[in-house]
């Protein structure tokens, strides 16, 4: 199947199947977003616990949107994209977490507050 053209029309089962993926992604994203807002605003859990859950919800929504909207999955077609994304996240974890670590260490040595 090509990226930009299908031989089938909008009344085909394939179209409806593909559309369902978008609808699921959209519905789940809305639920996860609103859950995050309620947790951040509501004071249901302790601040630390709410912070962690909100973070997990964000990661879940990130995975869902890559799957639903950017067609990332375990299929052979999406494999090169998947490897690229996974390698990118490896770089992000190393570089972003490393940056926060070094700057926080520096701040604590400068007496600007603990790590």
């Amino acid at each position: 199947m090509s990226h930009i053209n299908s031989d089938l029309g909008m009344d085909s089962a394939e179209y409806k199947h593909a559309l369902a993926r978008y609808v699921w992604g959209f519905a789940l994203s809305i639920v996860l977003t609103l859950l995050g807002v309620v947790l951040a605003g509501g004071g249901i859990f302790s601040t630390g616990l709410a912070w962690s859950i909100v973070g997990i919800l964000a990661v879940a929504q990130l995975v869902i949107q890559f799957w639903a909207f950017m067609h990332l999955d375990l299929s052979k077609e999406a494999r090169p994209d998947l490897y690229l994304v996974l390698f990118t996240f490896l770089l992000i974890i190393l570089m972003a977490a490393g940056t926060v670590w070094v700057l926080a260490d520096l701040a604590s040595r400068m007496g600007m507050g603990g790590m």
Binding site: L39, G41, W51, V54, A58, L62, Q65, M70
Partner: peptide, 19 residues
Amino acid sequence: MLDIVWIALFTKVYLMGVL
């Protein structure tokens, strides 16, 4: 992609900021 980036910004800046 911009919406995926916004999930991270909304969570880190606003949700975690309020918390």
